Simulated scan of single mutants.
Amino acid sequence: MEQQKNNKKALKVTLLLFLAVGLIVFILPFGAEASWRQIFRFFGLSDFAAAADDAPLSVHVLNVGKADSIFIACGGKYMLVDGGTPDCGEEIAEYLDRRGVKKLDYVFNTHPDTDHIGGLGYIISHYKVEKYFAPNIPKNLIPKGEEYTAVQTALRQTGTSVQNPPCGESLQLGDLKIKVLAPVNTGDSTNNNSIVLKLTFGKSRFLLMGDAEKEEESDLLKSGENLSADVLKIGHHGSSTSTSEPFLHAVQPGFAAISVARDSSELPKKDVLKRLWTAKIPVYRTDVSGTLVFMSDGQRIHVLTEQ
């Protein structure tokens, strides 16, 4: 009985402390992002990705289930590629707050499927977004669901600039070079109209595939573009429709990242994993390791995992 009383008292004290420390966000002058870190340190909690805050470049493959959301930070500039499913928006925002984000320089929606566009309405409504990029897909492929509509509404209400980047367009995020490699041609599905991005920071290269399938991979191979990369974000969550052998041979990545969750689809597929293992490419999966963080100084890449 005495032990139960002590436990209840300890719980009350902890809750009161948490509420008190939470007020720091609104009272102290060092801002919300610093407050997050203060709170984590106060309670002895681990914000594992804090180790990336001082990295010249960090690429965060967020653990958003069988969906995609990739956060990129370089020299105090920030971008987000996709926003997971609709229920992920708030969770992604909390992660961005802990990283000190107040404004997103770029937001890319690789294609308008629910598991890529779902949380972006929330993000656009809660952060200043300088530029928003989306593929110019055929009208018959434009979704009619509420997730897509919510994003269009948020874009209009916030007056956010919207662009359909052509293949070959180049951008800068601090010292990070961003090049749009695809879609090369208009595909017959939303997946095969995915925006594919190549990120270059010094000698470090990242290839972000969205949900591009073999048809779009084939277009990339025919384009003559240099596809080699140190980190390949595997297309379509490890589906058999992507990561063909010729494409993998052209990229020759040092690391493979798969954003996925266990469900009836049984992704990533065994044939994809076999191709990666045969090529001796280390595979990092969000369903196994949680959020994945790739940090680079322009020479070497260091991998940090949540679990």
Rank of each mutant, 00 (worst) to 15 (best):
R205S: 06
K144I: 04
D230E: 12
L173N: 01
K198G: 12
P165K: 04
N193A: 08
D175K: 15
V251L: 11
R205K: 15
G159T: 00
Q172I: 05
T153P: 08
I195D: 02
A154S: 10
P135C: 10
E217S: 02
Y148V: 10
K222A: 09
Y127A: 00
D115G: 09
V251A: 13
I258L: 06
L155W: 03
V162E: 12
D188G: 12
E217Q: 04
N192W: 04
P165D: 07
Y122F: 08
Y132C: 13
Q163G: 00
G238I: 15
A212S: 12
K198H: 15
D230L: 08
G224S: 02
S223G: 12
D230T: 03
K179I: 11
S189T: 15
D230V: 10
I123Y: 02
D230N: 12
G224I: 01
G202C: 04
T186Y: 07
G159W: 01
S259C: 11
P183F: 06
A229P: 06
K144T: 13
Q172G: 03
M209V: 09
G121N: 02
R156L: 11
L173K: 01
D175A: 08
S259G: 14
F206Y: 05
L207H: 00
V231Q: 11
D219M: 11
S228F: 03
G118S: 03
A150N: 15
K144E: 09
S242L: 00
N226E: 03
K177I: 00
S240L: 06
N185M: 14
H116Y: 05
L227K: 03
L208R: 10
L221E: 05
I195N: 01
G187V: 08
G210A: 05
A250G: 12
G187H: 04
T241A: 04
G235M: 14
A134P: 02
K128F: 07
K144P: 00
A229T: 01
D219L: 06
V129Y: 05
C167N: 14
M209P: 14
E225F: 15
V184R: 06
L248R: 09
L141P: 03
K177E: 03
S204C: 14
G121F: 02
P135N: 08
K139C: 00
G238L: 13
A256H: 00
K139Q: 05
P135V: 09
E146L: 11
S125M: 00
L199R: 06
H236L: 12
V151M: 07
D115N: 08
S240R: 10
V151I: 08
N185I: 13
V151T: 05
R156Y: 07
T149C: 07
I137A: 10
S189W: 07
H116S: 11
S125V: 00
T153Q: 14
L248N: 07
G238W: 13
R156A: 07
I137C: 14
K179M: 10
E217I: 04
L155M: 03
F206E: 01
T200P: 05
K233W: 15
L141W: 09
K198L: 11
L120Y: 01
Y132L: 08
K233E: 15
G235P: 11
K198P: 10
T243A: 15
N191F: 02
E147G: 02
G119R: 01
V162G: 01
